[in-house]
């Protein structure tokens, strides 16, 4: 139960959406911390660039919304060693006014963002439940709270993925306290999905990896934004009670 956890690092990490942007940065940062990484993505060329001569990064071709291809990806990763870390990063953000979305295109985005996250988690759990140990980090967003226009499919599916984290905690936390599952908002990044003057993905990935290698049952169900923990919502009465009983824990930080 530690930061920079040795048991996590001694296993294999699987990162989805590792062909570009934040996923590439996370895969490289994990490799530089000594981990073997299965870098999952759809495009062989991009994954090769991610691996770029690092013998710790293994490209694995799969589409997270094609669940059979994802099953094969996990089997390929099994050959590298015991899976201890999953980072659910693959996502689509189609900027689409509602009148340009069809039910089919909406559900396809959902199939990637929510379906891919669930599928990868479920397959990781098959491995992690055998050892009782693991770390799952979900790259998340606040887009669900106040959806931007032309962002319905993204906002809905990413919001649902945060609820999935809560549902997983409800199903798993008492039985498998050492499978730690949490959400992380990387901030607005200078990537294809993000904004031009966003944060450099390598900078954000440093925090992401710090959080990914932090194995502590108390982290399950928590959310971090960039480098700082987001406290759970607490009503006025709850906050007053906490003050009176002296129950104040400083917020965790990743920097």
């Amino acid at each position: 139960m530690a930061r920079d956890d040795d048991r996590v690092k001694s296993g294999v990490a699987l990162v989805t959406g590792a062909g570009r942007g934040l996923g590439r940065a996370l895969a490289r940062a994990l490799a530089s911390r000594g981990m073997r990484v299965a870098a999952v993505g759809r495009d062989a060329q991009s994954l090769a660039e991610t691996a770029n001569g690092s013998d710790r990064i293994t490209p694995v071709i799969a589409d997270v919304s094609d669940f059979d291809s994802l099953r094969h990806a996990f089997e390929e990763a099994d050959a590298l060693g015991p899976l201890t870390l999953l980072i659910n990063n693959a996502a689509l953000y189609p900027r689409c006014d509602i009148f340009d979305e069809t039910p089919e295109s909406f559900m396809q985005t959902t199939r990637v963002n929510l379906g891919g996250s669930f599928a990868a988690t479920r397959m990781a759990l098959d491995r992690m439940a055998e050892t009782g140990f693991g770390r799952i980090l979900n790259v998340a967003t606040f887009a669900d709270l106040h959806p931007l226009p032309a962002s319905a499919a993204y906002s809905v599916s990413k919001g649902a993925a945060r609820i999935l984290t809560r549902a997983l905690v409800a199903d798993l936390a008492d039985r498998f306290p050492d499978i730690v599952i949490s959400d992380w908002m990387p901030g607005m990044l200078a990537t294809r999905m993000g904004i031009p003057d966003g944060l450099a993905p390598d900078q954000s990935a440093k925090w992401g990896v710090e959080l990914a290698l932090w194995h502590d049952p108390a982290l399950s169900g928590t959310s971090f934004e960039q480098a700082i923990e987001i406290p759970p919502p607490r009503g006025l009465k709850g906050r007053i009670k906490d003050r009176l009983l002296g129950r104040r824990r400083p917020l965790r930080r990743l920097d």
Partner: peptide, 18 residues
């Protein structure tokens, strides 16, 4: 069940399938 479980006997769980 899974051999690695550390489940406590919890009266708080009330859904029969759970």
């Amino acid at each position: 069940g899974h051999r690695s479980e550390q489940t406590p006997l919890s009266p708080g769980i009330f859904v029969p399938e759970a």
